[in-house]
Amino acid sequence: MSLPSMRLGSGWIIGMTLLAGCSAEQRTLVAAQPTSPPTGPDDPRIAAIKGNFYQISQGGRYFTWYGCTSCHGEPKTGWPPRLPFVTYYARIGHKGYDRKIAAEQRWQISAYLNSLTVTDAAKRHRQAVDQKGEPTAGQWQGPL
């Protein structure tokens, strides 16, 4: 058969294997989330959380909710810089945020920041547009 269909065929196989790595799709709603900071770069929770779509997208929502955009603006190419996960986690603690943001959510925001460095601009944009209705710290005018 022709080349494109072979490419598609292999795409299908790759797709299915990606699906097989299904922990990326896992969605945990029970209280099995981290409650303490990462113990170091080798903490096994890091790989689990930063590879999970649900945790990343939750992190994206908190990023808006806590008003990170009011100083940093919308994420753009070059921001955030590519840093180790533990560094993201530590930096989110700045300006007293360590007292405002629960550990679980800091994990998720770190995972989100980490994902942004590999997310292309189009995807970042469409997720941002989709979330325009989310409350934003400082600018929220709806009911509290």
Partner: peptide, 18 residues
């Protein structure tokens, strides 16, 4: 193959049509 591919990339529509 075209349908499954188009979950991952819009180009599946183009190359799948051939």
């Amino acid at each position: 193959a075209l349908f499954v591919g188009s979950i991952y990339t819009p180009w599946a529509l183009v190359w799948g049509a051939v």
